[in-house]
Amino acid sequence: MKDHKKEIAEELNEISPFLAKLKKEKKPQSGLPSNYFNNFGDRLLSRIKEEEALTPKTTANAKKDNSFWAKISWLFRPQYAIGLATMLILVVVGINMLNQTPATVVNDNPEQLLAQLSADDLNIYIDENLDEFSTEDIIETMDEQTIEQLPSTEKAFKEAKATIEKTEPIKTPSPVVEKENTIEIDDLTEEDILEILDEEEFGDEDDII
């Protein structure tokens, strides 16, 4: 303890020799009412006992009634109970409103109505009234899977080409030949005409006329 005090004195001497000197000259502290410390304990204990006398009932009651209902009893005070009841009513009404479904709903939105139809119904309708639909309309009714299943244009073209190549080309008579076989009536004489008729076995002159 003495070392400790010595250390403090040395530190102060380093910081402020003036204050170190002042501390050594320090006189006993005064300015206290007489017998203050002799009476302080009694004054204090009487104050503590007075305060305890005023508070023990509330403490005892709090200890006695420590049940669940006692803990939530504050909820039943008017200021809280009114608020709580209002809140409950609002919750019940809200739940009822959410659960309520309208008896008849008149839906006249064509898109929604169409959406309610099955794919089969749509296909039947389109087949029966095909003339009323454009190609775009028909494509719109197809789902992605159906469209993917369709052969691609390029594939279809190749298949068609291969099929065509396999078949024999249709021979058309050459116009030149036709020209050669064609007999102009102005070029014929009367004898030529009779000869041709004999060759064709027309029979009588009456048949010719």
Binding site: L22, K26, K27, Q29, S30, G31
Partner: peptide, 14 residues
């Protein structure tokens, strides 16, 4: 306002 802790003037200034 109150009497100084020490009667000495320098203590009062301290």
């Amino acid at each position: 306002a109150d009497s100084p802790l020490d009667g000495d003037e320098i203590q009062a200034v301290l």
